[in-house]
């Protein structure tokens, strides 16, 4: 596989790989490093990539595995909890912040790693359940269950914020 073929068959998934790294690591610069690291590794093994049928699944699986390894190493050195999550924003704090989109990103980041990965693969990358199951080495049923849990958590947090906004509005009247 030469550079052009590598560009066409692997680097076409660069955005998805990067977004996955960013979702798992919750760190933009860390995601960029992980992405570049994986691209180099795939490039070094480019001669073995021709036999892979689903290159999207392979790329995303590799990206996830690399990021999970990075998280584990950080855990070994201490300073992190086992499942890295962003802290859920305080509803009161939400009322003070102007950027609601940014808040939603933080809500998604506050989900457990597996749930936020599945939600983003389904809602951002538009990958179907079967392929998500293949990438994550899970059954389709397990993917559906985790997806449902993640979306319901998001709905509950959004409803909580909405109710806090209404109460604040009533208080200010």
């Amino acid at each position: 596989m030469d550079a052009q073929q590598f560009q066409r068959q692997i680097l076409c998934y660069s955005d998805k790989m990067y977004r996955m790294a960013r979702s798992i690591l919750l760190d933009e610069s860390g995601a960029k490093d992980a992405f570049q690291d994986l691209v180099m590794r795939l490039w070094e093994r480019r001669d073995q990539l021709d036999i892979i049928e689903n290159k999207q699944a392979f790329s995303l699986t590799s990206m996830r595995n690399l990021c999970v390894d990075l998280l584990r190493k950080k855990l070994e050195y201490g300073g992190l909890t086992a499942d890295i999550v962003s802290s859920a924003p305080d509803p009161q704090q939400e009322l003070e912040e102007q950027d609601s989109l940014h808040n939603i990103h933080r809500l998604i980041d506050s989900l457990p790693e597996l749930q936020r990965t599945i939600v983003r693969m389904k809602d951002v990358e538009e990958i179907d359940i079967r392929e998500i199951a293949q990438i994550l080495y899970m059954s389709e049923n397990a993917v559906t269950v985790n997806l449902s849990r993640a979306r319901k958590k998001l709905r509950d947090m959004i409803v909580t914020i909405q109710q806090s906004e209404e109460k604040q509005y009533e208080r200010n009247r």
Binding site: D2, A3, F6, L11, S14, D15, M17, Y18, R19, R22, K32, F35, Q36, V39, M40, W43, S100, L101, N103, I104, H105, I108, R120, D123, V124, E125, L154, R155, I158, V159, Q162
Partner: peptide
Amino acid sequence: MYKTLFAAFSQEREWTSPPARLPRE
């Protein structure tokens, strides 16, 4: 209340990767 949720997903879809640096062949 769900409009922002779907808008956030659309916004994330616009995040692009940095350029991939490959060694020269």
